[in-house]
């Protein structure tokens, strides 16, 4: 749920990166952090295990600046992708304003993407959220690897509702900002 404060003239929205483990969610956030200008970003916080796997979440605040008198900012979160961290994933989804589903394009991760998407829809349902109430975009990551599913296959299985989708190579930054821009615009349009 976005926060609109008319007294301090501030708007904050929450965007969550969701998807299977090792799919590139944290890589997206880290790339954004590395490229965005210092005055437009806050500190990047990672609650990770010793092996650098996300334990609870990564968090990056991004300031959009002053829009018609409102300081507008997006709070970007990732969830832990590993199957057994569902309790944490569900907590991060609470009050979400927009979601980026980061799918791993590799053939061997095909089923993991389906499971993760299904898990996301189930978790959203517990908060009475569905695809008609919260904007979602998909990102097909790791398009540079050799053994990947075609975009058509991924679209057919993961994206029957025809949500906006983007190809990416997050480690190189390809597609990262296109995805973020798309979800940010949808979140702004959805403000009510």
């Amino acid at each position: 749920m976005s926060l609109i404060n008319y007294a301090s003239r501030e708007i904050s929205c929450k965007i969550v990166y969701y998807g299977p483990g090792l799919g590139g969610k944290t890589t997206n956030i880290k790339y954004i952090y590395s490229k965005i200008s210092p005055n437009a970003k806050g500190n990047l916080i990672s609650l990770a295990t010793e092996l650098d796997r996300t334990l609870f979440f990564d968090f990056l605040p991004v300031n959009l600046g002053n829009i018609r008198g409102f300081k507008t900012r997006f709070h970007l979160y990732t969830v832990p992708g590993q199957v057994y961290y569902n309790a944490s994933r569900k907590l991060i989804l609470k009050s979400v304003d927009g979601i980026v589903f980061v799918a791993d394009s590799q053939v061997e991760r095909f089923e993991d993407n389906i499971d993760s998407l299904q898990n996301m829809l189930e978790n959203l349902q517990e908060y009475n959220i569905n695809l008609s109430t919260v904007p979602v975009v998909l990102q097909y990551n790791k398009r540079d690897l050799p053994n990947i599913s075609t975009v058509d296959e991924l679209e057919r299985v993961l994206n029957p509702p025809k949500l906006p989708s983007f190809e990416s190579v997050a480690v190189q930054g390809i597609g990262v900002f296109e995805t973020l821009k798309a979800i940010s615009k949808l979140v702004i349009r959805n403000l009510s």
């Binding site: 959009l64 829009i67 973020l180 702004i188």
Partner: peptide
């Protein structure tokens, strides 16, 4: 009711800012 002050102009300007910030 629509959120006060967040009219179509606000949303357009926000989109322009997004284009600028994430270009």
């Amino acid at each position: 009711n629509n959120v006060i002050g967040l009219d179509i102009d606000f949303k357009k300007q926000a989109e322009n800012e997004l284009d600028e910030l994430f270009k």
